[in-house]
Design a protein around this nucleic acid. Sequence first.
DNA 1: ATATGTGAATTGATTCACAGCG
DNA 2: CGCTGTGAATCAATTCACATAT
Lengths: 213, 213
Amino acid sequence: MSTIPTATISRLVTYLRILSQLEAQGIKKTSSDHLAEEAQVSAFQVRKDLAYFGRFGTRGAGYSVPTLRRELRRILGLTRAWNVVIVGMGRLGQAIANYPSFDQYDFLLKGVFDIDPSKIGQKILGLEVQHTDALPTVVREKGVDIGLITVPQSAAQDAADALVRAGVKGILNFAPTIINVSREVHVEPVDFLAGLKRLSFYIQNPQLKEELA
Amino acid sequence: MSTIPTATISRLVTYLRILSQLEAQGIKKTSSDHLAEEAQVSAFQVRKDLAYFGRFGTRGAGYSVPTLRRELRRILGLTRAWNVVIVGMGRLGQAIANYPSFDQYDFLLKGVFDIDPSKIGQKILGLEVQHTDALPTVVREKGVDIGLITVPQSAAQDAADALVRAGVKGILNFAPTIINVSREVHVEPVDFLAGLKRLSFYIQNPQLKEELA
DNA sequence: ATATGTGAATTGATTCACAGCG
DNA sequence: CGCTGTGAATCAATTCACATAT
């Protein structure tokens, strides 16, 4: 079996969102051409990405929207609910917790944590903010899979260590820093300051538009 | 001149952050080995990334932290301030506006916008929330370079269109959807729901750890 | 002695062209 | 005929090895 590019996984997430929108519009059929246009990639790319996981289309006819959507949800592990906690209940943590339809995406918020005594005990969406020391208990008892880190940069590594010790399998890191975790825990960065700095580069160097992939 | 991988730009942002931390600690010298360890890449990669832009080190001795930091800031366009606006003053927009030291990074918030009449007129960090219709005026008068989109998915394309018409050069898109803009405007996505879904895939397929780049 | 800078080699990802199937 | 699925070819990115400079 050939190796799967990480970029393919990102694109599968995009294809799934497009399919969900098509399904919501009652559209039953689509094609690699259409998905490609919506995802802003080539049709070759769409077909190759899907080919890593199987054959989902009908030659000459394209793809069934419900079928391909179901398959992508299965491939991405989105047929089950994932239990998550948030570490860091500042403004960003609260915004994420309250994000519209966060729970509709089958990510269930099972706990919210901080180390600031003034925050502990506050209620967020019916959950009481707990001290990070309670992480191991909550992760075990609630079967938590994923931890979101929304603490300041200086506290991010401590939060990551606590989450890993508590036994989460994945971390979504909003803090603007790289965190070190054991090999078996996967980390996805969500770094908007880094995004701003990349924008700064591209705006300052518009002539590089052609020289960049 | 060879073409510059987009991944290189992301890594330069990481190297810059590491150098800033080293400088704050009073450390004057570093090496490609040290930067590589901190950035979780190879030392070859660090040197190759820097080589796209010049020679910044001393053979046998490594890199001067202040010098390399200054050079990276110059390369990334971070020696000047960038004027930004935020479109979407829900919880996420407010959290980003209030992000600790957002302005310390030389991104200056020049306006906040929404289309919800109940939000217009509210004060955020001394700025009055304005209707999106006012974007062209503000962008022109304040010299705004970058727009942040923190509206719901369904409103993201409209927000992007308004920003592009108003004349911004770059967009940081927090909405979970791909937006279409004219070629000369650069878009950086910041999609935490996509990050969660990628985590779902990697957690469900731990055996692929070796098969993924 | 030591660590950078860089052409060459290798590995990986994307694009292509067309075979295969409905 | 139309569109998918896929090996082959191309293109891009990373890794390597070592020449080079201090």
